[in-house]
Design a protein around this nucleic acid. Structure first.
Lengths: 201, 201
DNA sequence: GGTTTACACTAGCGCTTGCTTGGTTGATCT
DNA sequence: AGATCAACCAAGCAAGCGCTAGTGTAAACC
């Protein structure tokens, strides 16, 4: 059984699984549905994954790794100002929801279906991501850009962002950039944003 | 089959079902588990509900009706100022999450498990609740209390609030009142809050 | 006093589930 | 040419699923 490695085939299967998990939910997605989507028979599935749980864990790990990487990259590439860093984080978050939507939706909705071992492992990844947010929010608090309780503000912001998967329509007129702008404007109204952009209301 | 009426027995069963749906998720909760929790045999369950779907719909309807009622009541009882109305809505929302937690978590997490007919019926209820929010946010926008896009701001606020079920600990030191205060302070920092309370930071 | 109603029971049908088993294929390596 | 190995398949098992049929019983109603 090809349980340990990270073959390209396994990656492709993980991507397909994410799509099905979003459409049907984890519990309603049967191994036979997964196999069919992948163009193989259900028995063959267990050559790539130890069990159904491991497919879920693979989907979530993939998505979270990706988000973490993109957020770190966004922070490195943006300017030093606190306002720019807030923007960069919000934009990166929303862009991953756009480009890597399935894995993220699964991570948000099916987290509780993970068994304790997988949950423990993956929560470290998630904590690393949330730590990035808390750090940037800390900076914004110290700079007087936003006000309030560190813990509560970061939870509220994460909530507002994560909730977007429920209503955001990538085909609509609003771009991730617009949402990020609006969110930062909402919590830090006095902010001067990136050069070249006016503070729209 | 006692499918139509709203017997007290049925209400009690709905409450128990909500608890199990939160613990296990809808799909993982079997009719046998539900029956055992209710102290009856699985066959007897179908005297009270047509099928398993109907139990889910009952749970969600109960919770949403409740939230809508409490929000309307809160708006009637609070003062006329926009700031007070914002506060009242946030406080009411968080208090329902505290007192009627199970039904709300089910409504948030298991919405997609509803069949189309039930979803259609219940979405009207939910829309009525969200309309209350949009109305209050509209007032706040017009009063210049907060700024931004009407649609986006209300979605962000709903997200921040709904997300609280993921991290809020009712046993902890923070009261719903505190969260409501902090949220309003975050999006409307210049607000003068209720008499007798200082703007804490 | 007979009928209806509400609520519960027992027993199990028909089907689906995650997963296993034992074996085949075709490419790659030595 | 033989060995190795990932990838796949056909067949099916044991368990569990939602739900039904038919029955019992005590209280409520006419």
């Amino acid at each position: 059984m090809n349980v340990v490695n990270e073959s390209p085939r396994r990656k492709e299967l993980t991507r397909l699984a994410a799509q099905l998990f979003v459409q049907e939910g984890f519990d309603r997605t049967t191994v036979r549905m997964l196999a069919q989507e992948m163009g193989i028979k259900s028995g063959s599935l267990f050559h790539h994954f130890r069990d159904k749980q491991e497919i879920l864990a693979a989907v979530i790990e993939e998505g979270t790794q990706n988000a973490l990487m993109l957020a770190r990259q966004a922070l490195e590439e943006c300017g030093d100002s606190t306002s720019e860093r807030l923007h960069a984080m919000a934009r990166a978050h929303l862009q991953t929801l756009l480009t890597d939507r399935n894995a993220h939706v699964v991570a948000l909705y099916e987290w509780r279906r993970l068994d304790p071992a997988a949950r423990d492992h993956l929560s470290h990844l998630r904590d690393a991501y949330e730590a990035l947010w808390e750090q940037v929010i800390d900076e914004a608090l110290q700079a007087g850009l936003i006000h309030g309780d560190r813990f509560l503000v970061s939870r509220f912001v994460m909530g507002a962002l994560n909730w977007t998967v429920r209503w955001y329509d990538p085909e609509g007129p609003r771009k991730p950039e617009d949402l990020a702008h609006e969110l930062v404007a909402m919590i830090a109204p006095a902010t001067h944003v990136q050069p070249g952009q006016s503070t729209k209301v």
